[in-house]
Design a protein around this nucleic acid. Sequence first.
DNA 1: TATAAATAGGATAAAATTATCCGAAATAAA
DNA 2: TTTATTTCGGATAATTTTATCCTATTTATA
Lengths: 144, 144
Amino acid sequence: MFSKACEYGIKAAIFIAIKSYEGKRVSPKEIALEINSPQAFTAKILQALVKHDIVCSIKGAHGGFEIDSSNISKIKLAQIVNAIDGDSIYKECGLGLHKCDEDHPCPVHDKFKAIREELKYMLENTSLEELALNIKSGAAFLKV
Amino acid sequence: MFSKACEYGIKAAIFIAIKSYEGKRVSPKEIALEINSPQAFTAKILQALVKHDIVCSIKGAHGGFEIDSSNISKIKLAQIVNAIDGDSIYKECGLGLHKCDEDHPCPVHDKFKAIREELKYMLENTSLEELALNIKSGAAFLKV
DNA sequence: TATAAATAGGATAAAATTATCCGAAATAAA
DNA sequence: TTTATTTCGGATAATTTTATCCTATTTATA
């Protein structure tokens, strides 16, 4: 469904959100440990999240990554997915046709439409806050 | 969503089904032309479909690929996807956790569950026949 | 039986994705 | 101002996916 990069990005954002609620910044090393991902690769993905204004990075000693607490509830899963995997999951034809729409549909166009729209709705309406709280409460997990 | 190989596989199966209704066999060359795919790669994918008993191959002169007409309505999209991409689309965690279930869910487990189940239902209940008829009637297209 | 026409399948190659490494730049604090 | 800490970013490597090529094998038919 998502690329590895995107999976790491989502999990990293959730962990940064949790730590940000505690007023703490985190390093790629801590993140990689917490979400069970390769550290250097995770750092690259964090750069993408920074460029898309999803997380803030503070350079230098005592630096790290954080998310402005007041933003955590505003950030939706869709933004993270879009920052890393782009919009292909919403837009591209399920069978790879270059042109695929109501006028010129692929054989599964209608069947996929409903599923894709449900996915889109879910991603656009799930906030980082919600996911972070699930982890904090112990109702969900970031690794294993 | 699906791999390129799987996209080609689905489109190839649809085309073979159409030709099989006409009592004709088709070659990888014809298929690749019709679905706009790389020929040699398509041939490899056809081998996988043959191994999974989704299409029949007849070797030698006047050979080619075909699907027993009486089977076309029985073959579901899910079988094709499974033959090429395996069952990861149904089974794997959306965030890549090795263990992800009700007892130990990833943060998006519940949210993905509904979508994945809808996808599964759709794939298991869409027949090759239905898709082939869509192409035959001109209601859908295999390329461009 | 010889020949031409097909698929099968192994060996490679190309491209994309995933992953690692290291030096540069920035910053807080001694 | 120096040092230690930290992100940034370019170069490179490993792996997976996608794609190509060539030969072997099979089979209908002349």
